[in-house]
Amino acid sequence: MQINWIKCKERMPPDDDSDIIVSDQGRYYILPSYMINRMRRSAIMNGYEWIPYSDEAWKGLLNKRPP
């Protein structure tokens, strides 16, 4: 599965409670999108990327993680 990450510096996630998957230097987190939107400066400076949450994407990322 190919994941097309969205860079926070190009487009921030919506300011609502929809779930997103956040990539932070090879680590993945499920968060409500408003959390990243509200830490805008930090998200841009740290190079966070995000995608809308889906079970398929999350399972694919978990399978890529080293043990």
Rank of each mutant, 00 (worst) to 15 (best):
P67Q: 10
P32G: 08
Q2K: 15
R41Y: 05
W5H: 04
K59I: 12
P52T: 12
Y28N: 04
Y29M: 02
K9R: 13
M45K: 13
K64G: 01
P52H: 12
K59D: 08
P66M: 14
I51A: 06
L62N: 08
K64R: 12
D16P: 02
Y48F: 13
S23E: 12
M12E: 08
S42L: 06
E49A: 06
P67Y: 11
W50C: 01
D24H: 11
G47C: 04
D15N: 15
W50K: 01
R40W: 09
G26F: 07
L62Q: 13
Y48Q: 05
I20V: 15
P14Y: 13
S23L: 09
Q25N: 12
I30A: 01
P67G: 06
Y48E: 03
R27H: 07
P14D: 15
D16C: 14
G60L: 02
K59H: 11
G47Q: 06
G26P: 09
D16I: 10
C8N: 04
E49I: 12
M45Q: 10
D55H: 02
D19S: 15
S42Y: 05
C8L: 07
R40E: 11
V22L: 07
Q25M: 13
I30E: 10
I20Q: 01
L61I: 03
V22Q: 03
Y28D: 04
K9G: 01
C8S: 02
D24F: 13
R38Y: 06
S18W: 12
L61C: 00
D24S: 03
P14I: 14
W5C: 05
P32I: 10
R27C: 00
W5D: 04
S23Y: 05
S42I: 04
P52S: 14
A57W: 06
P52M: 03
S33P: 09
K9Q: 14
K64L: 14
Y34Q: 06
D16L: 10
S33F: 09
E49R: 04
I21K: 05
Y28K: 06
P67I: 11
M12V: 10
E56H: 02
G60M: 01
S23Q: 10
R27S: 01
S18G: 12
S23P: 00
P66C: 13
S18N: 15
I21N: 03
P66F: 15
K64F: 09
M35Y: 14
I36F: 02
R38N: 14
D19V: 12
